[in-house]
Amino acid sequence: MIKIQLVDDEPNILKALKRLLKAQGWEVDAYDNVDDALGGLLAHDYAVIVSDYLMPAVDGVTYLQFAKQRRPDAMRLVLTAHGDRQSVIKAINQAEVYRYLTKPWNDYEIVAAIQSAVELHQLVRENHRLLQTVATQKAMLQAREQELQRLEAEHPGITQVLRDTEGSILVGDDS
């Protein structure tokens, strides 16, 4: 199941978002402080993290930077009532956020942004998986190649097939 993490110091925001996102069939974990949210990152593999910007102690962008280190694949979104230029620049340059959304929001905007983040996350995951498949298959091929080379070294010509001018296979010690 796709897991979404929400971080906001305002409990009523978290409840409103949960109402909205659970209806989409996502599993939603809500945290009203950064410490618990950091703990949550260790325990769960989130596809998307949505964080407030202005919070006591640590701001949302700093939190998302931590999140980026712990869960580099999780897509990071900011949802804030404080959209000034400075915070937007910080969010993009430092936390590499996928979307910067503002409060008050339209439900469909949030859902569409998360939906598209989830798709991208799955794409990245799929990419990792395919890369791994390629790597294992490459390793297998390499092992075979080595075996062939070893045989060739031991019995020169054994890996070659000899044919005469009409295409028939020649079997014999001397070619």
Binding site: E10, N12, I13, K15, A16, L17, R19, L20, A23, A81, H82, T102, K103, P104, W105, N106, D107, I110
Partner: peptide, 13 residues
Amino acid sequence: NNPIGYVYSNLQS
């Protein structure tokens, strides 16, 4: 914007 944010979203829910 914070309270307006969740009130507005709640209305849509």
